[in-house]
Design a protein around this nucleic acid. Structure first.
Lengths: 85, 85
DNA sequence: TAGTAATATTTAAATATTCGAATTTACTTA
DNA sequence: TAAGTAAATTCGAATATTTAAATATTACTA
């Protein structure tokens, strides 16, 4: 878990949108895709970046893959940055 | 002050090093340069990114330019990311 | 087993980032 | 005014990122 990788994982509007989407609990990738307004491969790549940074976890649920934040701390960090005046 | 720009400003090892350098108070750019081990133009560009994101302030002191964090909150944010396991 | 749904990978194009070399600007001071 | 110091800008090269299209994989289901 490298700080630079975490900050990189947060330094993109689509990835922040993905975080926003899972803020209230885990979501299926198939729900995340329309939420972002991006293509399926694009979302898949972003999820890979976030997974690599260690900020999200996944779980299989039948055919689907459910995504959630590895720690709720990440939401607090994003909030603090938003509140930086 | 846009969140993505703030996270981008934090998503680089040299810029985190610059923050580390000014953690205990303002420093002259001429001190920051050797601290990073990078060239003067390179540091100048990084400072521009950080200034644009609104996370640092500058002040002239004679010939020199002193740099400090716009808010100490930024150090707490970096610490929290470091502590994300 | 064939079809389908969910997701990943590959590829290529456009764009952005990082960096140092060279140059420039702005001040200060001898 | 000339020289020197501090910092910014320009430029080009190397590399990374973002994205969608095309394709592949996986696993369930009819």
């Amino acid at each position: 878990m490298n700080e630079v990788d975490v900050f990189k994982a947060l330094a993109d509007p689509t990835r922040l949108k993905i975080l926003e989407c899972i803020e209230n609990g885990e979501k299926c990738i198939c729900k995340i895709i329309p939420y972002t307004g991006k293509s399926q491969p694009c979302v898949s790549q972003h999820l890979k970046v976030m997974k690599h940074a260690g900020i999200i976890d996944e779980r299989k649920d039948g055919t689907k893959i459910m995504i959630k934040a590895s720690s709720d701390k990440i939401f607090k960090i994003v909030d603090q940055v938003k509140k930086l005046k």
